[in-house]
């Protein structure tokens, strides 16, 4: 009896360990296109890196300059989304790489760009990435729901990344360690390096 009990436990533990994600219902039904819009950027590394880089850049410039992006970035995504049908996803690779390189270099050099330039860069980037996300839409997709999902996740990612960067860097008055500034700049160097690699891959292909 004791042996059977142990075997039962082992079998139950194995079954639990082997279980995968349920992936049930929500994406394919009713408000599914909203969730599709919210999840779509996470399926593309360009979105993940560029959105994060923009948030970190805004955060590194301080809350007073960066807070404009909370409005500007989702707006850019919404403007870019319909353009995806016209331009498609083609030839966006080099522009993405150039953006990655530029933002990375600005972070690495700790450039203090004005608020207007920050807004212009992030708006341009959001339009580009909005178009790239829009290019993948099928004819059955509810575009309004997709746009709402995309704008919501754009707002969330930019706000969170920016806030985390502001908190991480701290302020000069609270005596934050200088290594935090160096860490943010090093991250910029890494992002620029990825952009440079990506540009060469696009040019070579």
């Amino acid at each position: 009896m004791k042996l059977k009990f142990r075997r039962g436990w082992i079998a139950a533990a194995l079954l639990l360990a082997q279980g995968g994600a349920a992936e049930a219902h929500i994406v394919a039904a009713r408000l599914g296109d909203f969730y599709m819009g919210a999840l779509h950027p996470f399926t593309d590394l360009q979105d993940v890196i560029l959105w994060t880089a923009t948030g970190v850049l805004a955060g590194s410039l301080g809350a007073s300059r960066g807070r404009w992006l909370i409005l500007v970035f989702p707006l850019g995504l919404l403007v870019g989304l319909p353009l995806g049908r016209i331009f498609g996803a083609a030839s966006a690779g080099l522009a993405d790489a150039a953006m990655m390189l530029a933002i990375g270099l600005m972070l690495a050099a700790a450039t203090r760009i004005p608020t207007s330039a920050l807004c212009a860069i992030s708006f341009g980037l959001a339009v580009m990435r909005g178009a790239a996300n829009g290019a993948d839409l099928g004819p059955d997709t509810d575009r309004v729901l997709f746009a709402a999902g995309l704008a919501c996740v754009g707002y969330t990612i930019i706000t969170l990344t920016m806030a985390l960067t502001v908190v991480f860097r701290g302020t000069e008055s609270d005596g934050s360690a200088p290594w935090r500034t160096i860490a943010v700049r090093a991250l910029g160097g890494w992002i620029a390096a990825i952009g440079l690699m990506m540009a060469s891959i696009v040019l070579a292909s």
Binding site: A108, G189, A192, A193, I194, M197
Partner: peptide, 8 residues
């Protein structure tokens, strides 16, 4: 900061 960039 610069090493990964130069390596790239």
């Amino acid at each position: 900061i610069t090493f990964p960039l130069v390596m790239a």
